[in-house]
Amino acid sequence: MKKKKQVNNIIVYTSLSLLLLFWLFPILMALMNSFKSNSELLSNVMALPTTFKLDNYHRTIEKMHYLRSFFNTVLLSSLSVGMMIIFSAMAGWRLCRTKTKLSQIIFALFVFSMLIPFSSIMIPLYKVILALHIKNSLIGLSFVYAGFGVSMAIFLYHGFIKGIPFELEEAASIDGCGKITIFLKIILPMLKPVTVAIAISNVLWVWNDFLLPLITLSNNKKYSLLLSTNILFGQYSSDWSAILSALILSAIPVIIFYAIFQKQILKGIGDGAVKG
């Protein structure tokens, strides 16, 4: 019986490890081949690089304006998520605490739109963006993301605030605190756990979003990381050593982010399901 279990164990570990190898295969292959010159790459894709050259990386950092694209993406995600959080926390708090018909209607209006898929409104949205002259504006685009993200965030804040006792706010209000003070001094600090979860999942979303920047950013000075990578792929369609180093470069920030916040990220995915 015990022996059977041990054999069983070995089989499961081996198959998991093999599957994991397959899982990471594209990333490892991209990494390994990104150090080779093009001729070295074409002659044998499975061989380890003979020398550890960073030429490709130098080349692509320059070609895809890596730093500029990186900071564009940082600006875009932090502004978008910052606005999303402040706007939704304010709205979620009052929507939860105000027990009027109006409050219910507004909340329902926010929740209803979670059903609308992005691809079905992208054209009228594009028209709005043109009309407001925010095409090619990273700041403008972050307002768009905020508009898209508030529904879900309000929904989450609303649910979280329900569980916070009302007495604290009441006491502060009797002490003469205004609503803004109560919000900033009492509510906002208590929302921290849910704020962290919302921030992390939305940073990942904005950072990895491709279709919206693709239709709104046409000026290469404003390109996000993904757009620069995409353009590079189009321009160097057979220069794999350049492309692979670009792919690694644009994957690195997310992988670092994942390494730092993996506990929160994985918990967020699991929690979302449990509450679902």
Partner: peptide, 19 residues
């Protein structure tokens, strides 16, 4: 309520509801 909801509602209206 309206004052606190306004920022969220404005961006939401312009970029999601109106489109």
């Amino acid at each position: 309520l309206l004052l606190f909801v306004a920022p969220a509602f404005i961006v939401y209206f312009i970029f999601k509801l109106y489109p």
